[in-house]
Amino acid sequence: MVVPVNYYLGLSLALFTLGAIGVLIRRNILIILMCIEMMLNAVNLAFIGFADAFKAVDGQIFVFFVMTVAAAEVAVGLALVIAIYRNRATVYVDDLNILKW
C-alpha cells in the first residue's frame, strides 16, 4: 500500500503545530526542549515523505543532518539547564526574570 504524500504532509503539519504550541505555552524548560524536538521531527517527517514521493535522496540526507544538529542543540540546552539549576534551583521559565522585557 502506498501512503500518499498528502498524508505525510498533514501529519507533519499537525505535529509541527503541536510542538510550536507547546513551546509557547509550557513553562518547564525541559518540556520546551522536547517540544522543539517534536517540531524538528515533524520537519524530518515532511522531508522523508517528499523524498519518498519524488524518489530523491537529498531529503533523506537532510534528515541525518537535522538529527545530528538537534542532538548538539539539546546537549547545549541541557548543559544550560544544569547551570541554571545549580545557580537558581529552578527549571521554570517564569523564574528567569532578571532581564526584563
Partner: peptide, 10 residues
C-alpha cells in the same frame, strides 16, 4: 549570562 543563554537557545 545563564538567563540570556537560555532565552537565546530556546
Amino acid at each position: 549570562s545563564n538567563e540570556a543563554a537560555m532565552k537565546y537557545l530556546v
